[in-house]
Nucleic acid binder design. Structure first.
Lengths: 174, 174
DNA sequence: CTGTATGTTCAGTCTGTACTGAAAGGATCG
DNA sequence: CGATCCTTTCAGTACAGACTGAACATACAG
């Protein structure tokens, strides 16, 4: 994996770009792409060389990927170094990422909305309108959370089934 | 709206933070929050003053929000200035944003994956593995797109119905 | 115990994006 | 047809976050 093929390069670069657009560090995304494509676990030094980034950058990026639970260190007999490998189940990978982003960003937003609603001063001019808007937004986030909780409990296959059911419901109602 | 209440301030600031975490410009997000909370359409100058940002910054940010279709200019009798107002339907707002991000980011990714798959050189060592991984990832993106297409066609209420059906299916299978 | 290999931390630098302010571009009024 | 008001554009600046490299920490081998 020290030398990348054309296709590997393209995939890794694109994944890096994608990452930045969704608020994920470019290097983090690139490393993930590299490990995802690699048949074997890769030591940090080799990652750094392959992607031309500093060894320290790899260290912190790997740490972040480990926090997300989509990359882990494995050991190779006769080698002191840690080798890193990516989870290969794409659905599970995205589920993990989404779960964490929900925890870090959606949940705090729900909290802020709740707090805002609690603190709307009824004497303030336009309080009624503010409350209305905040409640609409809060309702949305609650619904999304509910939807997420349902999805999470469903095995992957069931999501597919729901997809088909959706089609039927639409046809009946259309 | 020139003077913000404590709650309005909190909401706007949080929305700005949220924005940055998802790759959306802070000012863009803040302006959207301001307009969302505002009972009346707001002229650009007032937005600039209220948020303490340059008039020009408001101009470009508003443009972006207009591109997304969640903010539009309206006119007030006897006032030459454009007043801006946000869409108030939260579900529709997010649908629009998601639709655009899908177009700008998911679709190009599907394209890249397709191209990568087409260009995997079977002679390259490990080509088989690369193809496998790319196909898994491509499959995921296709499924997400399919899911999105279904969702889009469903009226809002039906999503709720599906949510309940999901619960049933889970219980039957659990 | 010493030397080497590996991993982490952190201060400083670099880079890309956001933002500003000035200037130019349009539109409407008198 | 100026004058005025409003908006947009753009070159330059400021800033936040990413990245580097050196110093430090840790583990293992001989």
């Amino acid at each position: 994996m020290a030398e990348l093929s054309r296709v590997q390069k393209q995939y890794i670069l694109h994944w890096g770009e994608m990452g930045t657009k969704w608020g994920i560090n470019r290097t983090v995304a690139q490393i993930h792409a590299l490990l995802y494509l690699s048949p074997q676990a890769v030591p940090a030094e080799e990652i750094a060389q392959t992607l031309s980034v500093a060894r320290s950058n790899v260290s912190t990026s790997i740490r972040e990927l480990e926090t997300w639970g989509i990359v882990r260190a494995v050991h190779v007999l006769g080698d002191r170094r840690e080798h890193y490998e990516s989870m290969k189940d794409v659905w599970e990978m995205f589920r993990l990422v989404i779960e964490q982003r929900k925890r870090r960003e959606i949940d705090p937003t729900r909290e802020v909305l709740r707090q805002c609603l609690a603190e709307v001063d009824p004497k303030e001019p336009g309080a009624e309108y503010t409350r209305e808007r905040l409640e609409a937004m809060a309702g949305f986030f609650e619904a999304v959370t509910e939807l997420y909780d349902e999805m999470r409990r469903l095995p992957t296959g069931t999501v597919r089934k729901l997809l088909r059911m959706g089609t039927k419901v639409r046809k009946k109602e259309g």
